[in-house]
């Protein structure tokens, strides 16, 4: 186990190295920032946490950072721990997002994201509606027409039931007047298996984050019908769902939260820290590399956003028969 320990130390040292020179200082550096990730290493929240850590260190906004992973059930295992054991810690942040809102509702958890202190929404990933290259559907309208004619004949692949992909399909169905429980949603264990089912034409269509499909679309193996963003995106040749006649907009957003019970001053300092981070060129750079759309929203407005998102997702999960 010597090699393992040495390597870990090496890896830690590597991540300590600043990516670029210091930024204009806007907040006093925090000595040790603790980031809580209610998911396993390697996933979207973990990548977000590590990106935050890297940028904060590179811009000298913090001197050190420590990441704790508590994986399980879309964050439902980690959240109670963050609420109970991290209460009142002014130097702590948790990464979470839309997936956790859905998971808490579907699992009938007594807890919700309104119980932690909202700091900032950071990034969003819009969803994409795709079909296999050989599909007869050329536009969103073709897809919607088939869905209206007989939803059971249009199996749609995506991630686990009640997740962001399923939620978007529910919203589309509702918007075009198809009863949500009638839609034929085939849940796969993650984006990879869903893409495989699409490439093999096992299903009629698929929904996932654009990143899952991007390369297949470029290679001409999948056809992109629409994206769930609010407006057309640079470099992506597809209309939004709204342009396609479906009044739906959805971002799979990720953000950071402080524990409950922090003082107003601590909360304000944390908001300021994150605002300085999102304003840095290093943050813009990392978002570009990872295909994240920066959709920063901080403080009280973010709190309101969480509340409206929770209500909206609860409604759609109810329509789908999952809550």
């Amino acid at each position: 186990m010597f090699t393992r320990r040495d390597l870990m130390a090496g890896a830690a040292a590597a991540s300590l190295l600043p990516l670029a020179g210091a930024n204009a200082q806007t907040a006093a550096p925090v000595d040790l920032l603790k980031i809580f990730v209610p998911a396993a290493p390697g996933g979207g929240w973990d990548q977000t946490a590590r990106a935050v850590e890297n940028v904060l260190r590179a811009t000298k906004l913090v001197n050190g950072a420590q990441i704790t992973n508590v994986p399980g059930a879309g964050g439902a295992v980690g959240l109670p721990q963050f609420i109970n054991q991290w209460k009142g810690q002014g130097n702590a942040l948790m990464v979470a997002g839309m997936v956790m809102v859905g998971s808490l509702i579907a699992n009938k958890s007594a807890l919700s994201l309104t119980q932690v202190t909202p700091i900032a929404r950071l990034t969003g990933e819009f969803q994409a509606l795709v079909v296999p290259a050989s599909s007869p559907f050329k536009t969103t309208k073709d897809f919607v027409d088939a869905l209206k004619a007989d939803p059971t004949k249009v199996p749609v692949a995506g991630g686990s039931a009640g997740g962001s992909d399923h939620i978007l399909l529910g919203m589309i169905a509702k918007a075009v007047g198809v009863p949500a429980p009638k839609v034929s949603y085939v849940a796969f264990a993650g984006g990879g298996p869903a893409v495989a089912a699409l490439l093999g034409s096992q299903v009629a269509a698929g929904i996932s984050g654009y990143g899952e499909f991007g390369e297949q679309i470029k290679a001409g193996k999948l056809r992109l019908l629409a994206i769930s963003a609010d407006k057309r995106q640079e470099g992506i040749d597809a209309p939004t769902l709204k342009e396609g006649g479906v009044d739906v907009e959805l971002f799979n957003w990720r953000g950071v939260f402080a524990p409950p019970g922090v003082s107003d001053a601590q909360r304000a300092a944390m908001v300021k820290l994150i605002e300085s981070m999102t304003a840095s060129p290093q943050w813009a750079d990392i978002c570009k590399k990872q295909d994240w759309t920066p959709i920063t929203l901080t403080g009280a407005e973010y709190g309101k956003y969480i509340e409206s998102e929770t209500a909206r997702i609860r409604d759609i999960l109810k329509d789908l028969g999952l809550a």
Binding site: L7, M8, G10, A11, A12, A14, S15, L19, P41, G42
Partner: peptide, 15 residues
């Protein structure tokens, strides 16, 4: 291996 590689991901900033 999945967990180990995940923990070593920061190495990609350097190597």
């Amino acid at each position: 291996p999945a967990l180990t590689i995940a923990l070593l991901l920061p190495i990609t900033f350097k190597v």
